[in-house]
Computed example of a mutant assay.
Amino acid sequence: MNIIIFGATGKTGHELVTQSLEKGYKVTAVVRNPTKMTITHPHLTIEQGHLTNYTDVTTIVKAQPYDAVFSALGAKTPFQREPILTKATKNIIQAAAENHIDKFIHVSFIGVRKESSTLGMLYKYIAPVVMKNLIADHREKEAVLANSGLNWVAVQPPILTSGAKTGNYIHEQHINKGISSKKKLSRANLADFMIQQLQQDTYHQSAVFVTE
């Protein structure tokens, strides 16, 4: 399996790189600043590029025949719009489509769903106000992905933590408010779920809620 990871130096991206290498996959990590990539491995290739520059993105994507793309781009702050991330996501999606990559797995946020209000006070009253810009950006990126024609999965976790990979989490296409009491997810478990999607088509062209 040969995969390419965007957002590889972020906390979720780091987990994706680490766990993919542990499984024996070949990994290309696309970064803006290579000095921030602290992982070294014989199966790891580090590519530098500016994701808002389509030439950079498509040159990297077409350099190898990739089986899948992971997009784990993270916002610097939830308090303002970051159009640069939407532009980057559009470029990655376009490059993936043009180079016939089989699967696109994208990290979003459960707050994009209106029915997330059933998950408690945080998602009913606080997130729609405090995270309104973050949510707007995620909705815009998901809309682009939904219209891409790719074999995509939009993974929608709740609040992310730095906890360990336990494998103890649930995933569902529709929110069942009674199925989880924690309403949080470790980045390690998020990466574990995303990597599992390489071998599955359960959530083909759909969004999925993953939580502990």
Results as ranks from 00 to 15, higher is better:
residue 103 K to W: 10
residue 104 F to D: 07
residue 104 F to P: 03
residue 106 H to D: 14
residue 107 V to I: 15
residue 108 S to R: 02
residue 108 S to C: 02
residue 108 S to N: 08
residue 108 S to Q: 01
residue 108 S to V: 09
residue 109 F to L: 06
residue 110 I to L: 08
residue 110 I to D: 05
residue 111 G to N: 04
residue 111 G to M: 02
residue 112 V to E: 12
residue 114 K to M: 13
residue 114 K to D: 15
residue 114 K to Y: 13
residue 114 K to L: 11
residue 115 E to Y: 02
residue 115 E to S: 09
residue 116 S to H: 08
residue 116 S to A: 13
residue 119 L to Y: 08
residue 119 L to A: 04
residue 120 G to E: 01
residue 121 M to C: 04
residue 121 M to T: 12
residue 121 M to G: 07
residue 122 L to T: 15
residue 123 Y to G: 01
residue 123 Y to D: 05
residue 123 Y to I: 01
residue 124 K to V: 01
residue 124 K to Y: 06
residue 125 Y to W: 15
residue 126 I to H: 06
residue 127 A to N: 00
residue 127 A to F: 14
residue 128 P to G: 04
residue 128 P to Y: 01
residue 128 P to H: 06
residue 128 P to A: 00
residue 128 P to K: 02
residue 130 V to I: 14
residue 131 M to D: 08
residue 131 M to I: 09
residue 131 M to A: 10
residue 132 K to V: 03
residue 132 K to I: 01
residue 132 K to W: 02
residue 133 N to M: 14
residue 133 N to W: 15
residue 134 L to R: 05
residue 135 I to H: 04
residue 136 A to K: 14
residue 137 D to H: 09
residue 138 H to E: 09
residue 138 H to N: 12
residue 139 R to L: 09
residue 139 R to M: 08
residue 140 E to W: 08
residue 140 E to D: 10
residue 140 E to A: 15
residue 141 K to H: 01
residue 141 K to N: 14
residue 142 E to Q: 06
residue 142 E to Y: 03
residue 143 A to L: 13
residue 145 L to P: 00
residue 145 L to C: 07
residue 145 L to R: 05
residue 146 A to Y: 09
residue 147 N to S: 15
residue 148 S to M: 07
residue 148 S to C: 06
residue 149 G to D: 00
residue 149 G to E: 10
residue 149 G to N: 11
residue 150 L to W: 08
residue 150 L to K: 02
residue 150 L to F: 12
residue 152 W to G: 03
residue 152 W to Y: 15
residue 152 W to S: 05
residue 153 V to H: 00
residue 157 P to A: 11
residue 157 P to V: 04
residue 159 I to Q: 09
residue 159 I to V: 11
residue 159 I to Y: 14
residue 162 S to P: 02
